[in-house]
Design a binder for these strands. Structure first.
Lengths: 228, 228
DNA sequence: TAGATTGTTAATCGATTAACAATC
DNA sequence: TAGATTGTTAATCGATTAACAATC
């Protein structure tokens, strides 16, 4: 590991460039999930005025082992100092960057029925740097502002145009199953980067669009009543 | 598999009793999740009039490998016939029994805000043998029937009593984070068997109560915008 | 019987955890 | 320096997949 070895990959197994860590390996989905949990924990610690935190303490908060915490962070670079732990504030920012939540991602909901309007006005989304822009629906009776935040609902016909014009990054799908594929395709074509779908239907979309499916009925069933 | 065989349990490695298969081993959570997906697929196949299905075909539908399908079923017993496949109808019933969805589970929602009222009237829950009984809320202005199904909302003070009297098996939590622990404890004490929580708060409950957490903000974040 | 498909074992893959030298 | 805690490797655990004898 001496300076003469620089032509061969140096002692930096995962990170390409220290200033802007780009993960070379595929990051396990479980790690990405935990990243959000770390972000929240660090946010709380920061508000409480803490400057440093150890992997041990983060592990306690998340309910996992400290080795896992250290390994998770190691996917993205070196953030800690042996003997001292991790710097709360800058680690939080680093993770926000990794998750894209430093970008103020613009979110829209398509399908403003019961579930859709709940999601449109769900406070939890706005906390971590997401901004709810608008809703879309096919039904004219729903084309009005909703909830205390007065979020507007537009005709679904305007979906593509508004995604482009208002730079909507993420679309939340809460439409009937029959409509899902067509709506999702429109979103993808208009340049939406991610789709969170609450519709129990398989979506066929171009590779570069991130898709995350949430199936509420499945979640309920996965309580698994007979099995332990 | 002739009728005479039904009384004597054949070589059955995992199952204790043929008439009421009790898994001895701990069933992986991933398997339970897939069980719900199998149930849906089988439901569709049954409606289409199909009598047999192979592990290969089920694997296609679920997007996994046939070996996994066979192994999943093997946790609970022997349901198939070599050369023929699985009997659609009886396998569906078997899985329904395993998932508890042969019981018509009674569901209630606590916290009838935006999200809660969406869940109260979410059609997806009623499909697989779940019955939405009522909602609860602390706010008197919400104590009225909701939605097209006219599901009543009661004072949260009546929660314990009504869980007992109306035999509510599953409680869906959509209350503010501060209230979650107390409400959950009340449910557990009153005999609720499962809790599906949409509240981002850790719940401390007795072992026998099944808990499933869904964190919508986390789901959104897990689109993982920077990481691939 | 011949073809098909199961149940099950062994091999593979991936994720978690323990352990520890390196470092502040 | 001594104590603490990181980053990383190796060991463990668990879940998926391939392969195949057993069976209809």
């Amino acid at each position: 590991m001496n300076p003469g070895d620089l032509s061969t990959p140096p002692a930096r197994p995962v990170v390409e460039d220290a200033s802007h860590p780009i993960p070379t390996a595929q990051i396990p989905k479980a790690v990405v999930r935990r990243l959000s949990l770390y972000a929240r924990a660090l946010q709380r610690l920061e508000q409480a005025g803490r400057e440093k935190v150890s992997s041990e303490e983060l592990a306690k908060i998340l309910g996992c082992k400290s080795a896992q915490v250290r390994k998770d962070f190691a996917y993205f670079g070196q953030f800690g100092t042996p003997g001292l732990g991790y710097p709360v504030s800058s680690l939080r920012q680093e993770i926000a960057k990794i998750l894209g939540s430093d970008r103020e991602l613009h979110v829209a909901v398509v399908g403003v029925g019961n579930l859709g309007s709940a999601l449109l006005n769900y406070g939890g989304f706005t906390k971590q740097g997401y901004r709810m822009i608008c809703g879309f629906d096919a039904d004219p009776s729903r084309w009005h502002e909703t909830g205390p935040a007065k979020i507007p609902v537009y005709p679904v016909a305007e979906l593509g145009r508004r995604i482009r014009e208002q730079k909507i990054h993420i679309v939340v799908l809460a439409v009937p199953a029959e409509a899902a594929q067509e709506v999702a395709a429109t979103c993808a074509e208009a340049g939406a980067e991610g789709i969170m779908s609450f519709v129990p239907a398989r979506l066929r979309l171009p590779e570069h669009v991130r898709v995350h499916q949430v199936d509420l009925a499945l979640e309920l069933e996965s309580l698994g009543f007979y099995v332990r």
